[in-house]
Each structure stands twice: as C-alpha cells, then as structure tokens.
C-alpha cells in the first residue's frame, strides 16, 4: 500500500496550563500525492495552528505527523527539503532585495543555479523587473507573489499555503489558482490550502476539510459539502400562471420566495426536470429561467453562524 504524502493522526494543540485552551483537538487526515486539499473553517477554528504544526514552527501537544512515510519529529530537516510554505501573514526581510532573499533561501535548499530557478517564476508572477528592488518597495500583492515564488522555486513535493491569495486582486487570485493547478499537473505535487474565498476553494480543491473549534466536522468533496446545507435555487420569471405555480409548489411542499413576477424555489438537483415538466403541463409559461448551484459559501456561512 502506498503511504500518503502527508499523514496526520490525532493532532492536538493545547495552549496554557492554568486555563488550558484547546486550539486543535484530535485532527486526523491524509494528503495524497497530487491532491489539493482545502483546510477551511471560521476564524479561530485551528487552520493556521494546524499549518504551523505541520511546519514545525509550533510544537504539538500530542499526535503524529508523517511526510512521505517518515516521522516528521525525527526527520524534520530532511522532510522540509521537499516541503515549502507561503502565507500572506509572513513577510521576507524588507531591506533585502528580491534576488538576495531568494539567494538565501536557495542556499537553505542547496540550490546551485538559483537564478535559473527563480527567474521564470518571477516572470510568471510579473515581478522579474523588480528583482533588484528591496522587498520594502513592493506592494502587498507583490510580496504575496514573491512568497509564492519562494514556495515553488525549490521544487517541493508538498506545499502548505495559508491564505495565499488574501491580499490579491481577483484577476491575480485567479491567475494564482491557475498556476497552482498547472504546477500540480506538471509536477504532481500535493497542496494543503487555506482560504476564506470559497469560490476559489471550490474551484481548486479536490477535497475539503472543515474545521470548527479545532475539530474536523466535515471531510468531503467541496460540492458534497455545499449540497449538504443548501439546495439548487431555481428562479423563474413567470409570464402566465403565477397562481398555478404557487399552488403547485404548495401542494408539493416546495419552499419558495416571491418577488413581483420572479419566483425562486429550493430543490434537489434531481427534482428540477420533473418540476419544470409539471409546470409546463399545467400551462405555466415563463420568460426566463436561472439555476443556481449550491455553494460552499452557504456551507461556510452556516458553520460560521453556528459557531457564533
């Protein structure tokens, strides 16, 4: 049996002794080769704490972490040669230029021709012309992109990303997501990803883990999580037969909302075709139809609402 790229078992972090606070409570999951795994949850749910423990920059209270089948606590340095990290919440020495920063990091990974590795990535992220500028002269978005260059120029097998697109404009965010998928396609790397942008997560992640109060409350495909809390929204602009439509919905106990001539129903995906068929048979005519898929955002909002 092939061992997962990253295996986490019963990971626990308790802060303090007098008034202990459990930030992460018995978290277990696997990250497979080539998988993009989203780690989601409201603020304070334990996402960043988990990532920090997976990097070794935060001690664990108990639990096991294995990368590539090796015990992380015994082989940290060896493992970190193949693991990298980027976060919006850290920076790089701001008096150093981009080139100097990357040179130092390249030395940590034993990379000889650092420019050959970094220049294509700097170019890809549109900051090659700023290579000899100090980090202090870069915008927040450019620093975020530099952090991604730092994370990827070392040819990692696993990348841990803590909200890597938080400070980016939508178009740049989209480009970063595209880049991550390209890299996965090209190198087969595994990505553990936290974000508050649910659309991005749904687009990017093969699987999603939801944390709440330090506990995994869901581990599933993004679309399954979305479906678990919300239905498809069918929106019709009725031309003729509004009363018949409402009567039919009430008879079938289908929830709806009404606004002027627009009526919106909450339905399961499989209920939509027979429902539309029934309306047609009842002689209802409509000017427009809109179908909205259940969203991961709805799931997130529901979890966040519950935790408040």
């Amino acid at each position: 049996m092939i061992s997962p790229t990253l295996s986490v078992r019963n990971l626990r972090k308790i802060y303090g002794k007098k008034n202990p606070f459990t930030a992460v409570d018995g978290v277990s999951f696997d990250l497979k080769e080539g998988e993009v795994l989203g780690l989601l949850g409201p603020n304070g749910s334990g996402k960043t704490t988990t990532i920090q423990m997976l990097l070794g920059t935060l001690g664990v209270t108990s639990g096991q972490i294995h990368y590539f089948g090796k015990d992380f606590f015994k082989h940290r340095s060896e493992i970190m040669e193949k693991v990298s990290f980027a976060s919006t919440y850290t920076s790089l020495p701001y008096v150093l230029t981009i080139a100097e920063n990357l040179r130092c990091f390249g030395q940590f990974y034993g990379i000889r021709d650092i420019e050959a590795k970094t220049n294509p990535l700097l170019d890809r992220f549109g900051i090659l012309d700023k290579k000899d500028k100090p980090v202090s002269s870069l915008s927040a978005g450019q620093i975020t992109r530099l952090m991604l260059v730092k994370a990827f120029f070392t040819d990692p097998k696993v990348v841990l990303l803590d909200e890597p697109t938080a400070s980016l404009d939508p178009d740049v965010s989209l480009d970063v997501c595209k880049f991550l998928l390209e890299q996965r396609e090209k190198t087969g790397l595994s990505i553990l990803f936290t974000s508050h942008k649910m659309e991005e997560v749904a687009e990017l992640c093969d699987r999603t883990i939801f944390l709440k109060n330090g506990v995994i409350i869901a581990d599933d495909l993004p679309e399954n999580l979305a479906k678990s809390v919300s239905s498809y929204q069918l929106r019709l602009t009725i031309v003729d037969g509004m009363k018949r439509t409402i009567a039919f919905a009430e008879k079938k106990q289908i929830p709806y909302t009404l606004e002027h001539r627009v009526i919106q129903f909450s339905l399961d995906e499989t209920e939509i075709p027979p429902f539309l068929n029934s309306l047609m048979q009842a002689g209802v005519s409509y000017a427009s139809i809109q179908i909205k898929e259940p969203s991961l955002e709805a799931y997130f909002l529901k979890i966040a609402e519950k935790s408040q």
Binding site: Q52, L55, G56, T57, S77, E78, M80, E81, V83, S84, F85, S87, T90, S91, L92, P93, Y94, V95, F105, F108, Y109, K150, L160
Partner: peptide, 18 residues
C-alpha cells in the same frame, strides 16, 4: 531581533535549516 522585526522567523524555520 532582525527576524522578529522583519516577520521572517516562521519563514526561516519552515525550511530545512537546523
């Protein structure tokens, strides 16, 4: 202190550096 001021400590120790 340089590492504190420049928010680089986590970056530094999330590498193979011993």
């Amino acid at each position: 202190l340089q590492e504190f001021w420049q928010r680089n400590l986590v970056n530094l120790f999330s590498t193979p550096l011993k």
